[in-house]
Amino acid sequence: MRTSLTEIAQIDNYLQGRLGIAAKLLFEARMLLNPPLIASVKLQKTISEVIFLHGRKQLRQEIVAIDHKLFTAANKAAFRAEIDQIFNQDK
């Protein structure tokens, strides 16, 4: 692998907790001596967090689509009747 990819791989392994104790300590020592590496670690961490939020947003949209299907599809009338009965029982 190219040097830049090797660094990305090492950062990813560090962030995902895949390094052993010795390798983790060595990596953290390298960070102390290398401020650009710290910046790269922070950026890569942010990228993975934003990907996570993007995934969460997509999943929420999938769930809303399921809700829409259950509350509109002709073959889900029994489900809707059960829910209507719960919220309209006091009326």
Binding site: T46, I47, S48, V50, I51, F52, H54, G55, Q58
Partner: peptide, 24 residues
Amino acid sequence: ANKLLSLLELAGQKCLDLLKSFYY
């Protein structure tokens, strides 16, 4: 998050889907 997400989209949909499979 939106600022960075727009940069992620520049890397291409396949990359975005691949990274999502790993991280989410």
